[in-house]
Design a protein around this nucleic acid. Structure first.
Lengths: 186, 186
DNA sequence: TAGATTGTTAATCGATTAACAATC
DNA sequence: TAGATTGTTAATCGATTAACAATC
C-alpha cells in the first residue's frame, strides 16, 4: 500500500501507527529476523516488502486444495485476495455425488476419495477445509494421510493432527460472538 | 457437542483436552466470571453451556447487516453456522447499481447510501464488511456514523474507528501466509 | 555537527502454570 | 473416610515496553 502511494521511506513509528502496534513492537519483531532499517532514516518500503516476502516465504506461488465445495467454499475458489497473494486454489474436492464433476468458478469438483492421488501429483501443500463440523476431523485425517502439512480450518472444531502439521483456524461465528460479548459488556 | 453426546458431567482436564488448552487455563478463565463446577466432581455440561451463553450474551438473537454482496458476502448470507448460533443476517448492502435491488440467497440487496435509515429502524448491532480493501475505511466510517458499534472486517486493512467501536478482523490470506511461513521454516 | 531513528538490552507487565487448600 | 477435582494464590515464564547507545 505504501509503495503504491509512492512512499519510499517510513519510520517504525509511522508504520506502527498504520498497523495498530507500538513502534517498539514493530522494531522488535523485525529484529528476530535481521536488520532492515537505516538508523536515523527509517525503512525503505520496497526493500522491506521484499525482505518480508522472503521471511514469510510468500514470494513463490503456492498450490492449495479446497475441500468442501459448498457456498462458502465456492466463494473462496474465486476470492481475489488469494490470487493477489500468490495463493492458487488449483483443485477442489467434495463428497457429494451431486457436486462431483460439476464446475464451480471454473474449477472441476473432484471426488474426495481421490484426494491422495491428486495431492501427490499436483504439488499441493495446503488444504482449506470448508466441510461441515461433523465431518471435519475425518477429512483432516484424510488430508494428513495424503501428505499435507498445513490446514486452514473453517469449522469451530479443534483438529487433532500430528504435531508436524500446522493448522490455522477461522471461526467466523466465534468472531461474531466475541463482538456480541463486548457489546453486551458495555 | 458434549450435550449432544449425552455427556452430563466433564472434568476441567477432559474439557481442556477437547479445546486444546491446559486444565488450569480452562479453570482460571472461568474463574473470572464465577464458579461453575463442583469440587471433586466436575462441570455439569448443560449448566455450563447455559452459563457460558449468558456470559457471552449469545442467548438472544442478534441482527447483523452485511455490507458488500460479492461472492464471499453472498455465501455468508446463507452460512448455516450463523443461523445455528443466533446470528441473523437481516439486511445486505452494496454500492453497485447492478446488484442493488437483486435478491441474493433470499435477501434483497439495498443501496449502501440508505444504510443509516435501515440500521436505525431494524435494530442492527453488528456489521460484516466484505467490501474491497480500498473502500473499507470509508464504509467503516459510514457504519459507525449509522450508530453501529461492532464490525467484523474481512479485509487486511486495520480500521480506524472510535474506541467504543469493537472490530474483529478475519484476514484469510494472512492465515494462509502464516501456514506458508511455518511450512517454509521446516 | 545536530537531529533523527534504528536495534537491542534491561525493566516491567501480564499471562500461564504449579501447587494446594477447600470441598464434593 | 478416601479419592477426585475445583477455585485460587503464588511462582514462573514470556511478551511488551522503556530506555539508550549506535549510527545514519
Amino acid at each position: 500500500m505504501l509503495i503504491k502511494n509512492d512512499i519510499d521511506i517510513i519510520s517504525s513509528s509511522d508504520f506502527a501507527k498504520l498497523v495498530h502496534v507500538s513502534p517498539e513492537q514493530f522494531r522488535k519483531d523485525l529484529s528476530y529476523f535481521g536488520e532492515f532499517g537505516k538508523r536515523g532514516v527509517g525503512y525503505e518500503t520496497a526493500y522491506l516488502q521484499s525482505e518480508l516476502e522472503k521471511i514469510l516465504g510468500v514470494d513463490q506461488q503456492r498450490n492449495v486444495a479446497l475441500i468442501g465445495a459448498g457456498q462458502l467454499g465456492g466463494a473462496l475458489l474465486n476470492y481475489p485476495d488469494f490470487s493477489q497473494n500468490n495463493i492458487n486454489i488449483t483443485t477442489a474436492f467434495d463428497s457429494d455425488p451431486g457436486k462431483i464433476g460439476s464446475i464451480v468458478n471454473g474449477i472441476e469438483i473432484k471426488d474426495i476419495e481421490r484426494l491422495k492421488e491428486y495431492i501427490s501429483k499436483s504439488n499441493i501443500e495446503i488444504c482449506i477445509l470448508c466441510v461441515p463440523a461433523k465431518n471435519v476431523q475425518r477429512v483432516a485425517k484424510m488430508v494428513v494421510d495424503a501428505g499435507v502439512h498445513a490446514i486452514l480450518n473453517f469449522t469451530s472444531v479443534m483438529l487433532n493432527v500430528p504435531e508436524n502439521v500446522f493448522v490455522s483456524n477461522i471461526d467466523m461465528s466465534s468472531e461474531i460472538e466475541r463482538l456480541v460479548f463486548f457489546l453486551n459488556k458495555q
